[in-house]
């Protein structure tokens, strides 16, 4: 599997490493994917890197690669963001993978081996949901709202109504809320806020977890929040050019 830029892998690692320390990557002809729960079983993260994400991709037999994020991060730090990355896994020797970084300008090449782990992976079945509300907005805006409100209080309430979408946090000494209304005057789709809902709803989530989820803003200019009464929120980032996505499911807090 050859990626045109290592930056994609670096950003994916950044987006999951606070939640998951080790995870199985499933490789098949469609691409590379992973699903993992954090140890507290509060967040589920799913990553899909489709064949389209790669400059070249070949997977003759489906394989599972058990990756420890810490050494993987150490290896990835050795790659420049614009260097090409080739990941090689051999079906004859499933003990490790090889990573080759290529800097075409400098004619430099570096090669690393990463030992694979035998991870007792648990796969959760996520049922298809009929969402009560969907909000799409610039991922940078969502990140700023969450980062700011997480400083105010540890509970983040998201309410959707005719007024728009309201994010509220309450701390011991202060309370803050931010309201977004659907944008009408913005041309660029990536800068638009779109809100759809069937019934008004209000749900509360842990702000520290939501903060970790906003790290994936680096992977996509837009984010979609899907909510339903008394269900986990789904926060989805679609990568450009059908390259794949990263999705998080965060369990709500209950009264």
């Amino acid at each position: 599997a050859r990626l045109p830029r290592s930056a994609v892998l670096k950003k994916i690692l950044d987006s999951v490493k606070d939640l998951v320390k080790e995870t199985n990557w499933d490789c098949n002809e469609e691409g590379m994917s992973m699903q993992a729960l954090d140890t507290g079983r509060i967040v589920l993260v799913e990553v899909m890197l489709r064949e389209a994400a790669f400059e070249s991709y070949a997977c003759e037999v489906p394989m599972t690669l058990g990756i420890d994020m810490e050494p993987f991060g150490k290896v990835l730090r050795c790659a420049g963001g614009d260097e090409k990355v080739t990941i090689k896994a051999s079906r004859n020797d499933q003990d490790h993978i090889e990573l080759v970084f290529e800097n075409e300008e400098k004619e430099r090449m570096s090669a690393f081996e990463l030992k694979l782990m035998d991870i007792d992976g648990e796969h959760m079945a996520v049922p298809d949901a009929e969402w009560g509300a969907e909000i799409s907005m610039p991922s940078s805006e969502f990140k700023k709202i969450v980062m700011d409100l997480a400083e105010i209080g540890s509970d983040l309430t998201i309410a959707v109504s005719k007024l728009g979408v309201t994010f509220t946090a309450q701390g011991n000494n202060c309370k803050g809320s931010m309201v977004l209304q659907p944008s009408t005057a913005v041309d660029k789709k990536s800068e638009q806020v779109a809100i759809s809902f069937t019934e008004p709803l209000e749900m509360t989530f842990a702000a520290p977890y939501m903060k970790m989820i906003t790290k994936a803003a680096a992977l996509s200019s837009t984010v979609t929040l899907s909510l339903d009464e008394a269900c986990p929120i789904c926060v989805r980032y679609e990568m450009e050019d059908n390259a794949g996505h990263i999705k998080y499911y965060l369990a709500p807090k209950e009264d």
Partner: peptide
């Protein structure tokens, strides 16, 4: 104060 729910209440192992 609200209690944190776990995903096991919503999703089952495959």
């Amino acid at each position: 104060k609200a209690g944190q729910m776990r995903l096991d209440s919503f999703f089952k192992p495959q």
